[in-house]
Design a binder for these strands. Structure first.
Lengths: 237, 237
DNA sequence: TAGTGGTCTAGACCACGAT
DNA sequence: TCGTGGTCTAGACCACTAC
C-alpha cells in the first residue's frame, strides 16, 4: 500500500486528509517541524511532499506564517483535461470509444522524421476519431517510432494507446511538451466527425518523451470545442 | 548582479551556458558532484537549480546516466504564450496598445464576489481590447478587489496592469489557475474588435493569487484564434 | 520577539544505467 | 561493478510574518 518513497507517502496522506476534510479549506496545516515529528522524518522530506501539493494548487505556503489549505484536488469536473490526463482513465473505459480511420506503418515524412528524431526507420501513423458517451469528441493524428512501440495492434487503438505502452510495454512517460491553439476543421474532418459546418476545434499538439529521453509520440488532436477545457496551474519561485 | 539565492545563480548560469551553446544540445552536463565542486556548494543546491531547468524542458536527468541538454529556452516564438507570460514584456511596450472599453468601480455580482472572496467591498471592473502591431489580439474582462490595488488609473490600463502591480505597488504574484477553452465571439465583441463574423476565440479564464494568498485578479480573455498559441510543459515524478 | 517556511551543508545510502 | 542521479538525515542559519 504505502509507496517506498517516504515523501510520496506523506504527499498522499496529506492529499487524502484534505480531500476528506480532515484538513479543512482555509485552515492552517501543522508546521513543517510538527509534521516531521508526526511522520518520523526530517523537515526536508515534509517540504518536498508539501511542495508537490503546492504546485497542484492545493496548498499555499507562506514563510513566517504557515501552510494553508486552498482547495481539494479536482478529478470530478466533466470536461477538464490536465496536462497529464488520459481519456480512458478520466471517463472510464466503457464511455470512450475509438474509430480507427488510418493505421499505417510507413516511412516518415522529413518533418515527422526530424521531430521524432528518426533516421531511416519506420513509424506508426494513426488517425483515430474518439467518442465520449457516443458523442464525437476529437480526431487524433499520431506518429510513433516503430522501434519503440512493439506489437501495437488495432485492439489497442480501440481503447488506450497509453495504457498499452505503460501497462504492457512497461515504458514510463517522463515529460511532455504541449501547444494549444484554435483551428478550423477541414471539410473531411467535419464529415468524419459528423458535425455541423460552423464548429471549430481546439488543437493540442504534443511531443511526449519517455524516461530514457526518447521521444515516443508526436500527435495533433483536434477537439470539438464545446466538450473541451484545458486546465493548468503555475507557481512562481 | 548575482542573486542572493545560490541555486538561482546556478540556475541562471547553466541556463545562459545552454542558450550560448557552451553546453550543447544532446550533450551531457557535468555530474551533480562536479557542479557542486565548481560552484562551491552542496549537491542539493545543484539539484534544486537543475530541477527547475528540467521542469522548463531544457534538461533531461536520468539516474544512473547523467544530465542531458535538451533545448534552449524559448522566448523568441512569435505567438507563443506561456502560463506566466505578460503581453507587454513579450511583445515590447511599443507594439502593444490597449483600448479601454469599460473602467468601473462597482459592487461585484454575487458570482464575482465569491470568486474574489469579497464581502461588502468594491471592485474594479475593466474591459480592454488589446492590439499587437495594430492588429486586434484580444478582449479582456478583468475583476480586481479595490482594496488590494490602490490608485489604478486609465494610463496604467493603456499599458500593463501587471507591471503597475509588480513595479509600483510591489505586490508579488505567486500562483495562477488557468482554464482554456474555445468560445464564439458575441456580435458586440466582433464589432468592438472589428473582425469578420466567422472568427472564434480561445478563451483564457484566470485566477491569480499574490504571495500572501489573496486573490487579486479574476479575468476572462478571449483571443482571436489565429494569433494565439499557448504552451505548457509537464514533468512526471 | 517568537514562530514560520526557505536555503544550505556534509554527509549517508539507494535505485538504476551502462559496461 | 561502477558511476549517476534520487532520497533522506540532523542539523544550522536566514527572511519573513504576526504580534
Amino acid at each position: 500500500m504505502e509507496p517506498k518513497i517516504k515523501y510520496m507517502y506523506i504527499y498522499n496522506d496529506v492529499k487524502n486528509k484534505i480531500n476528506n476534510n480532515k484538513y479543512k479549506i482555509d485552515t492552517k496545516l501543522p508546521t513543517e517541524t510538527e509534521l516531521a515529528k508526526i511522520y518520523g522524518c526530517s523537515k526536508l522530506t515534509v517540504k518536498k511532499a508539501l511542495g508537490l501539493l503546492e504546485s497542484e494548487g492545493m496548498l499555499m505556503r507562506r514563510r513566517g506564517s504557515g501552510t494553508y489549505v486552498k482547495r481539494h484536488s479536482i478529478l470530478n469536473n466533466e470536461f477538464i483535461i490536465e496536462p497529464t490526463s488520459n481519456l480512458t482513465d478520466k471517463y472510464g473505459e466503457k464511455n470512450v470509444e475509438s474509430k480507427i480511420v488510418k493505421f499505417l506503418i510507413e516511412k516518415p515524412s522529413e518533418r515527422i522524421a526530424e521531430i521524432l528524431n528518426i533516421k531511416d526507420d519506420y513509424i506508426y501513423h494513426i488517425e483515430r476519431i474518439r467518442y465520449i458517451n457516443k458523442q464525437p469528441y476529437s480526431i487524433e493524428y499520431t506518429y510513433m517510432p516503430l522501434s519503440l512501440i512493439k506489437g501495437l495492434e488495432p485492439k489497442h487503438l480501440e481503447h488506450s494507446i497509453y495504457n498499452y505502452i505503460q501497462d504492457i510495454l512497461k515504458l514510463k512517460i517522463k515529460t511532455g511538451h504541449i501547444f494549444i491553439r484554435g483551428k478550423e476543421f477541414t471539410k473531411e474532418e467535419k464529415e468524419l466527425l459528423n458535425i455541423k459546418s460552423d464548429k471549430f476545434s481546439i488543437e493540442l499538439e504534443k511531443k511526449v518523451y519517455l524516461d530514457d529521453g526518447d521521444i515516443f509520440e508526436y500527435s495533433v488532436t483536434k477537439h470539438v470545442y464545446e466538450h473541451f477545457v484545458f486546465e493548468t496551474i503555475f507557481v512562481n519561485n
